[in-house]
């Protein structure tokens, strides 16, 4: 099975991982630090790496003065729904793109790729008009719909790559055993591809989680706003309110970190658990 690595491999690896962790975490530390500083100490100079006094006022004011809990919940619900639907739909299209050969396949791939190149403002006018006509303005459900559309192409392309990594023989065996194509896809391939599916789900989730432009335009009511809209609200014409914004950012980052930590178990689970061997 897996052999132990020699020291000349494991020491540089640990060092490399350690260095990157520091680089990666520093900005988070900085936001965290800022979020605990009282307003008058945030822009202090010389720079302080530890607050003179800890203040929770940024956090309390966040919940007292704004609907932050609602924003968080909205973001969670909207992103999770969009990511789930988009990943499911993309499983189907990716499967076809990976397993079949047909003339227009390149065109389909390109059509998916092109959606990733479109600047949002071009589509915004017609989209807003359409949403007005459909009565979807200021509805979280409407936001979910656009986010699904936004996520499908990326998910299809990524999942197609993961499908390609799974040998054809797997589902063929299942189909010989009498499973339907869909049954083979669902029961045989999907379990094998779990790492890729989870990774794709996460990225879809995060793309919606961070989306600002459409969320600002399509949502009006305060308690239906999502996190990015709320975060951007701390920037005004004459000031960036670093205190409450950092507190909000910390509360935004933490759930995603939990998600990553949870999901990463499944990303690394991989084929080692023997799904293919059976």
């Amino acid at each position: 099975m897996i052999q132990k690595d020699p020291l000349w491999v494991s020491i540089p690896r640990a060092a490399g991982l350690g260095v990157w962790a520091l680089i990666s975490l520093f900005p988070l530390y900085w936001i965290l630090l800022t979020s605990f500083k009282p307003a008058n100490q945030i822009a202090e100079y010389p720079v302080r790496y530890w607050p003179r006094e800890f203040s929770f006022s940024n956090y309390t004011s966040l919940f007292q003065k704004s609907e932050f809990g609602a924003y968080l919940l909205n973001s969670l619900v909207v992103s999770a729904s969009a990511a789930f639907v988009a990943t499911t739909i993309a499983l189907l299209s990716a499967y076809v793109l990976s397993r079949f050969h047909f003339r227009s396949k390149g065109a389909v791939m390109m059509a998916f790729l092109v959606t990733q190149m479109i600047p949002a403002f071009i589509a915004l006018g017609p989209l807003y008009q359409m949403f007005t006509n459909l009565g979807l303005v200021d509805k979280r459900f409407g936001l979910v719909l656009v986010y699904i559309a936004m996520s499908i192409p990326f998910a299809s392309i990524m999942l197609r790559g993961f499908f390609d990594n799974v040998p054809d023989s797997l589902e063929e065996a299942a189909m010989v055993d009498g499973a339907s194509r869909f049954g083979a896809l669902w029961r045989v391939i999907v379990p094998v591809m779990t790492p890729g599916i989870i990774a794709t789900f996460i990225f879809n989730f995060v793309n919606s989680w961070n989306e600002l432009f459409l969320a600002v335009t399509l949502i009006n009511t305060d308690d239906r706003k999502t996190i990015p809209t709320a975060l951007n609200g701390f920037i005004s014409n004459f000031n960036i309110e670093w205190g409450p914004m950092s507190a909000a950012a910390v509360l935004t980052i933490l759930p995603t970190m939990v998600l990553f930590a949870f999901a990463s178990r499944w990303i690394v689970a991989g084929l080692t658990q023997g799904a293919t061997k059976g």
């Binding site: 991982l17 989680w209 961070n210 990015p228 951007n232 914004m245 950012a249 935004t252 970190m257 939990v258």
Partner: peptide, 15 residues
Amino acid sequence: YQAMIFYPWAVSGFL
């Protein structure tokens, strides 16, 4: 560890 190095992706670009 993975959460620690993956989280930047979940921070919005403007921030």
